[in-house]
Nucleic acid binder design. Structure first.
Ligand SMILES: Nc1nc2c(ncn2[C@H]2C[C@H](O)[C@@H](COP(=O)(O)OP(=O)(O)OP(=O)(O)O)O2)c(=O)[nH]1
Ligand SMILES: [Mg+2]
Ligand SMILES: [Mg+2]
Length: 520
DNA sequence: GCCGTTTTCGGCCCGACTGTTTTCAGTCG
């Protein structure tokens, strides 16, 4: 897929525009950045979209208009983009990598290039080692020191981390801050709250009477490797797991607005703030202001949405993918709640002693792996329930599942299995291809017609929410499974539920809400 | 460069933290 290649080019064009910098063109740079984000989240191959639908199809993608559609077409047709090549002549710099260094943006990167010829990471390293940066205009001894620190953080950075890892760490940090006794309210925000499948960092929001003390506690946590910024409202630290964590402290009255702000996404926030402007108001993390008055003071997120004429939008939907339009019309999907499942639809350990867990999760039954079948790529799962004595009991009810990854080169056989009613659940659908590919559509059609559900593996988080979001217009049913390999891993189900919520899948399509009799 | 249930022109979200910037630019959330 060339989506990422083109996104990278657009990012670089944006950085070069920003580096050369007059105000007017910064909006153009934002347009390129927005288009790049759009391409990165696009599930289907942009080349396929262009070849089958032309420029009109490209212009249907959010953030892509005439100009950028032309540039995408130019890239696909000729392999290069003239505007990009021309800019590169003036700025032969690896912006993509250098902007990943905390504290380095387009302007300072350009300064480093113009003054001492820094083009890439290696050049930067040498410049820092030789102390050539401290004498540059706009830099000093301190900023050279900070750059050296940022470089170390970058090199030990894990990039985006998987949600299950980040979520566990976010909960640890939240609980640590709670046990300091300083927190009046505290909430995990950002992409963790939106249950995005990978996290760029961890974001936490708190209310406290003693911000300075709480910031001290935060920056001196055991797992903090270094402190990147520390103020009374906001601090950032680098954690041991190669990611950073932001703590934002806010007053009690502003908590609702702050949670709305800090949950994001950025694009959702920008849209919200524009809607506020349309209503003659101003939205920021402190409140919703009409004239000078904060009309949302002391209110929760729900109040802000409703005051702007919207229904409440769950965090998982806040990606500017149509949720604001839907909220305006009261047409948001009714998504499944985290504690409402009737069952875990596939686990992979002996659950005969798991009665306590079963009760704790409120499950009426659990389907557990019962071995592979003779046919390649097919396995069986058995239903277990709680009997009168409150112990787990296997039943005669079993279902057959197909693992799509075993049918990559034989999609027709898989479709036949589904159409013949030989399989009830399908795992690893994304191994077949992207959502827009014909073989995937054909499988989905077969599943919808023959009551085979797409099973989500909550442990590996696949198919992803982005994949399933592309399929949201289909009626195909969904089964959520933890794939737990031991009792503790039953908690992974949360991430599978998150996937269905992010994918706009409504409760009437979720198999886990059915009693076992209705599964058959 | 994108975009439009007030617009096809004229807007484009809004604020925190840092350094050497004497009044704010750059970067980031
Ligand atoms: N209004 C506004 N809010 C922003 C902006 N950038 C970030 N935010 C808000 C929304 C984000 O969800 C939140 C946390 O910022 P992050 O950079 O950590 O982004 P997020 O957690 O969404 O994604 P991540 O997985 O960390 O890359 O702060 C911005 O430019 N404007
Ligand atoms: Mg974040
Ligand atoms: Mg953050």
């Amino acid at each position: 897929m060339i989506n990422r290649d083109i996104a990278r080019i657009f990012n670089e064009i944006a950085y070069m525009i920003q580096a050369s910098g007059d105000q007017r063109s910064s909006f153009e740079a934002n347009a390129y950045l927005r288009a790049a984000r759009s391409l990165e989240s696009l599930q289907d191959d942009i080349e396929t979209i262009y070849r089958s639908g032309g420029k009109e199809a490209l212009m249907k993608i959010p953030g892509i208009g005439k100009g950028i559609a032309d540039r995408i077409a130019e890239y696909i047709d000729s392999g290069t983009i003239k505007k990009y090549e021309d800019l590169r002549k003036n700025y032969p710099i690896d912006f993509e990598t250098l902007t990943k260094i905390e504290g380095l943006g387009p302007k300072r990167i350009l300064m480093l290039y113009r003054s001492i010829g820094v083009k890439d990471l290696n050049d930067l390293k040498k410049a820092i080692e030789d102390h050539r940066i401290r004498d540059l205009p706009g830099f000093g001894e301190k900023s050279e020191e900070i750059l050296s620190q940022s470089l170390k953080i970058y090199e030990s950075s894990a990039g985006r981390i998987p949600l299950p890892l980040g979520y566990a760490r976010a909960v640890e940090i939240r609980d640590y801050l709670i046990q300091t006794g300083l927190a009046e309210r505290i909430e995990i925000a950002g992409s963790t709250r939106r249950m995005k499948d990978t996290l760029g960092d961890i974001d936490i929001l708190a209310v406290t009477e003693k911000p300075l003390q709480m910031m001290d506690a935060f920056t001196s946590m055991p797992k903090v490797k270094s402190v990147i910024a520390k103020g009374e409202k906001k601090s950032t630290v680098a954690l041991d797991i190669g990611t950073t964590c932001d703590l934002r402290i806010i007053s009690r009255e502003s908590f609702g607005a702050a949670l709305q702000y800090f949950t994001g996404s950025k694009d959702h926030n920008i849209r919200m703030r524009k809607i506020a402007i349309d209503h003659g108001m101003k939205l920021n993390e402190y409140g919703l202001f009409r004239d000078q008055e904060n009309v949302a003071a002391g209110h929760d997120e729900d109040y802000i949405y409703r005051t702007l004429g919207l229904s409440y939008i769950d965090p998982e939907l806040r990606e500017d993918r149509g949720e604001l339009e839907a909220a305006q019309m009261g047409k948001l999907p009714n998504i499944v709640k985290y504690d409402s499942l009737n069952a875990d639809l596939c686990v992979k350990f002996d659950i005969s002693k798991a009665q306590d867990k079963m009760r704790a999760y409120g499950y009426a039954y659990i389907l557990a792996y019962a071995g592979s079948e003779d046919e390649r790529g097919i396995f069986r799962i058995r239903s277990y329930t709680l009997n009168r004595n409150d112990s787990v009991e296997g039943t005669e009810t079993t279902f057959r599942c197909a693992d799509a990854s075993s049918f990559k080169d034989d999609v027709d056989s898989l479709i036949k299995y589904i159409r013949d009613g030989k399989v009830r659940f399908l795992t690893n659908l994304d191994a077949i291809g992207t959502p827009g590919e014909e073989k995937v559509s054909k499988i989905i059609e077969a599943c919808t017609a023959s009551r085979c559900s797409i099973m989500i593996d909550s442990k590996s988080m696949r198919p992803s929410s982005d994949f399933l979001f592309s399929l949201r217009k289909n009626d195909v049913r969904i089964a959520i499974a933890s794939f737990a390999g031991n009792p503790d891993e039953l908690s992974y189900i949360r991430f599978g539920i998150g996937i269905t919520r992010r994918a706009w899948i409504s409760t009437d399509r979720i198999d886990n809400l059915l009693p076992v009799e209705e599964l058959a």
